[in-house]
């Protein structure tokens, strides 16, 4: 009996290659040899928080209702990185940040990192965890209803939504738009992306969500790993072109290889 799971050999090789490429990218990043393009949606977050300070209105940061144990956990982790960033900016610039919670597993982590951000900025006395990070509900539309009501009452100046979102995405985007908030929306859930693209001022498309934590950290090693993402895409693009040409010629070797 094989030690390795059948039909997962090629993914395993791809995963090992991904590790090696990421290691190489980290080393190049350390040397400052990797440059990445600007992501307007992430650059706009500081502007959005600044706008909230000028207008004297709050900032909302929503990480979605994903958990750490479902297939959207990576998006939740990415969303928490942005929550940490927004909390730091809000504490530093003096904006009131609200981050309503939907998942009881994510909530303690969110509380901890917001507390850390305020402590680091020396503003812990300005943080009211119960009010600013309330647990609304684990039920989708109860949670959505709570956030829509908060948006209508508080008229936030900025709304940053990064994480996994479902049908509530459009409810949020429209409600905050009506409240006059500048919005940055990002998700890797394909069906919700058009809603964010339609209504939000800035949208993080798919992979940009995963790059967000590294991007805002400014750490050259983390930025290097974003460079690795581009390498994989180039390899994928080349494989797709060659595979399509060979398949058209009646030689589906690439498809056969990838399904091993």
């Amino acid at each position: 009996m094989s030690v390795f799971t059948e039909e997962r050999l090629v993914p395993l090789v791809a995963f090992v290659l991904a590790w090696l490429a990421t290691y190489l990218a980290i080393q190049l990043g350390k040397q400052g040899k990797i440059r990445i393009r600007r992501i307007p949606g992430l650059d706009a977050i500081e502007e959005a928080v600044g706008r909230a300070v000028e207008m004297g209105r709050p900032v909302f940061e929503i990480v979605g209702m994903g958990s750490f144990t479902d297939i959207y956990a990576t998006q939740t982790v990415a969303g928490l990185s942005i929550l940490s960033y927004v909390a730091t900016l809000s504490a530093r610039l003096g904006a009131k940040m609200y981050a309503p919670q939907a998942d009881v597993g994510v909530m303690p982590v969110a509380i901890e990192l917001v507390r850390t951000a305020y402590t680091t900025e020396g503003k812990i006395e300005e943080l009211d965890i119960d009010e600013q990070l309330p647990y609304l509900s684990g039920e989708q539309f109860a949670w959505a209803g709570g956030i829509i009501a908060m948006a209508a009452r508080m008229k936030p100046a900025a709304n940053i939504m990064v994480g996994p979102f479902w049908a509530e995405s459009m409810l949020f985007a429209e409600s905050f738009d009506r409240a006059g908030a500048m919005q940055v929306g990002g998700t890797a859930r394909m069906y919700q992306l058009p809603f964010f693209a339609a209504v939000c001022d800035y949208t993080l498309l798919g992979e940009e969500v995963f790059a967000a934590g590294a991007y805002v950290s400014g750490d050259p090693m983390q930025v290097g790993t974003i460079g690795a993402q581009d390498w994989y895409k180039i390899v994928g693009f080349i494989l797709a072109i060659i595979g399509a040409l060979l398949a058209t010629a009646g030689v589906p070797v690439i498809g056969d290889l990838l399904s091993l």
Binding site: G206, T225, Y232
Partner: peptide, 13 residues
């Protein structure tokens, strides 16, 4: 494809 690659890199990171 971009989402899949991004998720793998985030996982490794």
């Amino acid at each position: 494809i971009g989402i899949g690659i991004g998720a793998v890199v985030l996982g490794i990171r």
